[in-house]
Design a binder for these strands. Sequence first.
DNA 1: GGTGTTTTTATGTGCATACATAATAAACTT
DNA 2: AAGTTTATTATGTATGCACATAAAAACACC
Lengths: 233, 233
Amino acid sequence: MNTPKFRNWQSVQTEVLRRIHAREWRPGDLIPNEADLALEFGCARTTVNRALRAVAETGVLDRRRKAGTRVAVQPVAKATLNIAVIRNEVEDAGHSYDYQRIKRREIAPPPSVSKAMKTPPDQWLLHVCALHLADGASYAYEDRWINPAVVPSILDENFETISANEWLLKHAPYTHGEIKFSATSATQGEADVLQCPLQSALFTIDRITWDIDTAVTSVRLLFGPGHQIRTDI
Amino acid sequence: MNTPKFRNWQSVQTEVLRRIHAREWRPGDLIPNEADLALEFGCARTTVNRALRAVAETGVLDRRRKAGTRVAVQPVAKATLNIAVIRNEVEDAGHSYDYQRIKRREIAPPPSVSKAMKTPPDQWLLHVCALHLADGASYAYEDRWINPAVVPSILDENFETISANEWLLKHAPYTHGEIKFSATSATQGEADVLQCPLQSALFTIDRITWDIDTAVTSVRLLFGPGHQIRTDI
DNA sequence: GGTGTTTTTATGTGCATACATAATAAACTT
DNA sequence: AAGTTTATTATGTATGCACATAAAAACACC
């Protein structure tokens, strides 16, 4: 009864997941240490480490130095959402993409925006509103504030044919950001643009990106009724 | 002018990100191969590999064998949402958690549910509805269908004190699942339970989990108006 | 008995080496 | 010219070894 060999980290990972799933290792249990598992699996400890690290990244295992590795009691499901460029999102779904710029102006933002972007209240920003369409129907409404201090060349762009979404990705690097997902009721103006009833429930994404400590852009995306984003876990 | 040494993979990662950010490596650019970078950084190729792999996981780099590594043109922002147990979510936010079971019955599900869960139309399932409260106020409404074939012992549980959410995590393993996020308008019944106006925009999560090829549970979570989930990117 | 210190231990990581694999480019055929 | 085979190359990964580091556990001390 010799143990079957696990030659690569993927197979080790599979075996580990199998044991957890089969409840040989139950939630909360401390599993054998890497050295022992390596011995049992007939591979190097490095390989076991790689596998356990990968499983831990999904939240199924909890690892701590010296304390060891244990099966997570409440495996926090980590749903990874791919927030792609809207054009790609639409085209990948097999629809034709279209874009309409609605507004472009340089203006002092409302306090809520300047506060969120940490810009002086009197400093004007570039405000761009646009509509993204799929197969000719309104898909998402984009309301964006851009800090021209970060990318001055943006003032030469009128955004009539290219969306700020894509322009910024190409020209304005950012270091980090924050995304918020929520549901909001369509205001009259939003309902008009998105061609939906007043107070429709709109899936909403608020995103703000930073270049070190300077806000690059703050955007609100409103998706039409029925929109959903999905991911596998 | 000797190159500063990068002793560990994190510092290599930092340097790589710096170069991308500083536009020394621009979107679309092919970056030097691992061996060259290792030479330049004064470390082993393994270390460079670890760093580049980590960066690629965030979507900032695209890697392909033989083709090499290039800076992603459109860095798909991967927003990782932690879908935790609602109790933890509430308590971590510093609120007191409370739970009320509203309904529990064994019944043949509507076709939409049996179809989604791929169960025979006439097979009954366990239907549990409950309300999650934060600081006494309604927080989220949970409408769940459970396949007792997967965990028969669930029929002994009345879910009056423990939520199906937590019970299942502890007792019913699953291999994979699907999550959908959307915005829905509150129906009269939902508005009553969540104590919000009719047609309020509700942040909605639909999740279905599978044990290999058998549906374990299908749940819809409706969060009260104003609820948002956030993550850093 | 409580508090600070040392030891132990499991994970975390770096490195040199070797080979695997995918994908492209080059060479070669028909 | 078009298709097919072969060589090349960059990433992917396995391994043994060494040492780093965090944290629990044991110990010493007052």
